[in-house]
């Protein structure tokens, strides 16, 4: 048996869902499958929580060989990994983490753009991870519909701040996940966009007891990648095993995210929160009032010589085939 060492890196701590499932699912699964033939065994060194890189440094860490395998949080890298924004620029389509994970993963395999972007960073794409089912709007004040959000200050992070451009007079306030509780409590903002599981973790129900079920949608934020030089030296059997397990990890993780989301929504209500349903018309009105950020995204990719328009259409087509149709057709100008 030949032993192959692998340094796995992420800047997030070991207790984060995707890291924990890498340890508890991905690694044992690879070990088990390799043990079936007995040709190879892996020697894993797992370094999480900033011991080698910070969350924003995973991409560069894998590129430079500080880690052999890494869990890249793609939302930090709109510049180097523009195509990874695919789910974030298409809100109001699907709240099924599994469907989004599968569709993004297939886009990564069928179009060269995502793999090219990672190849430029000296790494090989392995799998897409979706860890949040959907953004919702959590409000401190009683709200009955989307129009009640007009004039609100609403916290968000990254691309979802642009969703707020569809609401009259709403001002987006940037904040990190860990700041939202305080921002809501002190009235610095009137509402915040986050997903139910995070809302449960940070006890958001205490300060923002109204959840507007806007169903903004699931977003891909993690990608497992392998350093390209390391990958070249791996035996085919190991490569194939990693790729196969990566697919299972993708579905496993998305499934976990969905289970947790359901439990988190229940916990929110049990803790005294009220879930306010949003009508299809209201969602459509919000979506239609937004700038078409999907088109902006496609144009950026087109200009870079990739098939942005085609990827967008294919992605939405895959989701539609899986039964998820958006309230706005992002492929139309």
């Amino acid at each position: 048996t030949e032993t192959i060492s692998a340094v796995v890196i992420d800047g997030y701590p070991a207790r984060a869902l995707w890291v924990k499932e890498f340890t508890n699912f991905f690694i044992p699964e690879v070990d088990k499958r390799l043990a079936e033939t007995g040709n190879y065994a892996m020697d894993w060194q797992e370094s999480y929580g900033g011991s080698i890189v910070k969350p924003k440094g995973v991409l560069e860490g894998v590129q430079l060989g500080l880690g052999d395998i890494g869990i890249v949080t793609t939302i930090f890298h709109s510049s180097k990994l523009p195509s990874q924004g695919i789910a974030a620029v298409t809100p109001f389509v699907s709240t099924d983490a599994r469907a989004v994970a599968k569709a993004v993963d297939e886009i990564a395999r069928e179009f060269p753009a995502m793999q090219n972007e990672f190849a430029k960073q000296n790494q090989v794409y392995l799998a897409t991870g979706v860890v949040l089912d959907t953004y919702q709007v959590f409000s401190t004040k009683e709200v009955a519909s989307v129009s009640d959000l007009e004039g609100f200050k609403i916290a968000g992070a990254g691309m979802n701040l642009r969703y707020l451009e569809g609401i009259d007079g709403a001002a987006g306030v940037r904040g990190g996940l860990t700041d939202f509780y305080n921002m809501l409590q002190t009235g610095l903002v009137d509402a915040a966009q986050l997903w139910p599981e995070a809302a449960a973790t940070f006890k958001i129900s205490e300060v923002a007891p109204y959840m507007l079920r806007a169903d903004l949608g699931a977003v891909n934020s993690k990608t497992i990648t392998v350093n390209a030089d390391y990958w070249k030296k791996l035996p085919d059997e190991v490569k194939e095993t990693l790729q196969a397990v990566a697919l299972d990890y993708r579905d496993h993780l998305a499934g976990m995210a969905m289970d947790r989301a359901a439990a988190a929504a229940d916990a929110y209500v049990a803790a005294g929160g009220t879930i306010v349903e949003v009508s299809a018309e209201d969602r459509a009105a919000w979506a239609n009032a937004m700038p078409n950020i999907a088109q902006e995204w496609a144009k950026t990719l087109n200009d870079a010589g990739e098939q942005g328009t085609e990827m967008l259409a294919a992605y939405l087509g895959k989701l539609e085939a899986a039964g998820h149709t958006g309230v706005r057709d992002w492929t139309q100008e």
Binding site: V53, K54, K56, G57, E60, G61, L64, G65, L66
Partner: peptide, 16 residues
């Protein structure tokens, strides 16, 4: 046993 790797770590640390 890798000089480039050491340089790379220096680069990442100084950068971020």
């Amino acid at each position: 046993d890798n000089f480039t790797l050491a340089l790379n770590l220096l680069k990442v640390a100084v950068g971020d």
